[in-house]
């Protein structure tokens, strides 16, 4: 059961962090980052399964696969930006956290541009 591993890793990290947070703040950040990366790598095989199933459903639903890929990319961008923001927040770098968030939002909008264009085209073509 991966969840036990993950929770164990999380609890161990929390214990270590609570010990090191006051004296070694820089080490604490590295530990939390490595813990999140570790958890992420444990999760990856599951994610690939989920994405395969999603692609199958998307094929059946007749959605253009480009859209599905875009949505998955956007979700990934959201997660990565979220990771960066939280780590920055943990390190008390609100400024950088805000910038990462902004970058994440802009990249999400940038990725969604083809979808927006397609939708606008569709709506315009409906009008007589």
């Amino acid at each position: 059961m991966e969840i036990i591993q993950i929770v164990a890793i999380g609890i161990i990290c929390v214990i270590i962090l609570s010990l090191f947070r006051e004296n070694f703040e820089d080490v604490a950040i590295i530990i939390s980052l490595s813990a999140s990366i570790l958890i992420f790598f444990i999760i990856i095989p599951k994610i690939s399964n989920i994405i395969t199933v999603l692609n199958t459903i998307a094929d059946k639903s007749g959605i253009n696969s480009i859209y599905v890929k875009t949505i998955l990319k956007i979700i990934g961008v959201a997660y990565i930006a979220e990771l960066g923001v939280q780590i920055s927040n943990d390190a008390d770098e609100k400024n950088i956290a805000t910038k990462i968030e902004l970058a994440g939002k802009i990249i999400i909008i940038f990725l969604s541009l083809p979808i927006i264009i397609a939708l606008v085209d569709t709506i315009v073509s409906i009008l007589p």
């Binding site: 859209y67 949505i71 959201a78 979220e82 990725l111 969604s112 979808i115 939708l119």
Partner: peptide, 16 residues
């Protein structure tokens, strides 16, 4: 980020 992603998903579903 949630609302941004939701908007994009909504657009895609609309197109579909």
């Amino acid at each position: 980020m949630k609302k941004y992603v939701k908007v994009v998903i909504g657009l895609t579903i609309m197109i579909a």
